[in-house]
Amino acid sequence: MGRKKRDVELVILSDIHLGTYGCHAEELLRYLKSIRPKRLVLNGDIIDMWQFSKRYWPKSHMQVIKHITSLLTKNTRITYLTGNHDEMLRKFAGFRLGSFRIDNKALLTLNGKKAWIFHGDVFDVTMQHSKWLAKLGAIGYDTLILINTIVNWIMNKMGREKISLSKRVKDSVKTAVKFINNFEKTAADIAIENQYDYVICGHIHQPEMRRITTEKGEVMYLNSGDWIENLTALEFDGTDWRIYRYQDDKHAQSVKLPKRLKNNLDNDLIFKDLVNQFLTVKK
């Protein structure tokens, strides 16, 4: 018998960036297979359409999509909120099919409190005025992650601890730290003005959960992080929030991947299976 799955009221994932070298799809698949969420919010940049290429689409990436789709047949409500890397989906905002929906933002009432959930790129000045620069930066970031993967492979062979080059860059550049602080403050200010209890974002790949207080009030700011560097998510158990960290979850790490993933099942076959599952969702 397989291990019992963990019941979770609400899971929020963002910045998975399927289709890029930095995406930790296998780890995400293990996490998803270890839980039974009642509700799943995909908060932007799930598929990286900026860098999507048919030349790089591992089967583990398709399996993540397939697993998420299969949750629809298990009474999980799924909301896909658009981000900047999957902004092409914004034209489908308002789409509904059974328990699946696509939106640009979500307003939820959780245990009597109001939660405002959106990706967060609306606060990014680079996105607003220089999209080409943002896309160039994304390519550079993915290249840095690829180099980091090679460096960590060498470090592992030498018996040394892994390092995060991009995290070191972020932590050492004052403008990056300032951008993150401004991002969090802007989100908090607007949420307080609108009397939300929680404001939940992604986009900046920085997992966080803290109460922000201003002269106008206070709000709980949460960020789900990413599945490039941090491998994090947000979980709500009906009463409390927590930042989930894959590195601390021995149970998820022990989950075996499906044999068909290792047997190199063709992506076309996986896609056909995915479509069949999607069509069985109750309308």
Score class of each variant (00 low, 15 high):
K282M: 07
T126R: 15
H24T: 07
S254T: 05
D171Y: 06
S99N: 14
F52Y: 14
E208M: 11
G2L: 12
H251T: 12
I200E: 02
K113W: 04
L32P: 05
F118C: 00
V281R: 08
G83S: 06
E9I: 02
C23M: 07
Q63P: 00
F118I: 00
R77A: 12
D171P: 00
W57S: 12
S99H: 08
R211K: 15
I12L: 12
L261P: 01
K91W: 06
M155I: 07
M88Y: 11
V199N: 03
A191R: 03
L165R: 02
V151G: 01
A187K: 06
I200V: 07
V64F: 04
R242T: 03
I192L: 04
V169G: 07
F271R: 13
R90N: 13
K178P: 00
I180Q: 11
Q277H: 07
D121P: 08
F95T: 10
T126A: 12
F271T: 04
T79N: 11
D103Q: 15
K131F: 14
K114C: 00
V281W: 10
L144C: 11
D15G: 05
R6L: 05
F179I: 06
I35H: 03
T175I: 11
D45G: 04
T20H: 05
L10N: 06
G2R: 13
T69M: 11
W50C: 03
D142G: 03
K259A: 14
T149F: 05
N152H: 06
R90H: 09
K174Y: 11
G140E: 12
M209A: 11
Y31I: 02
G19E: 06
T143Q: 13
D197Y: 04
Y246G: 04
K216T: 10
L108V: 00
A106N: 05
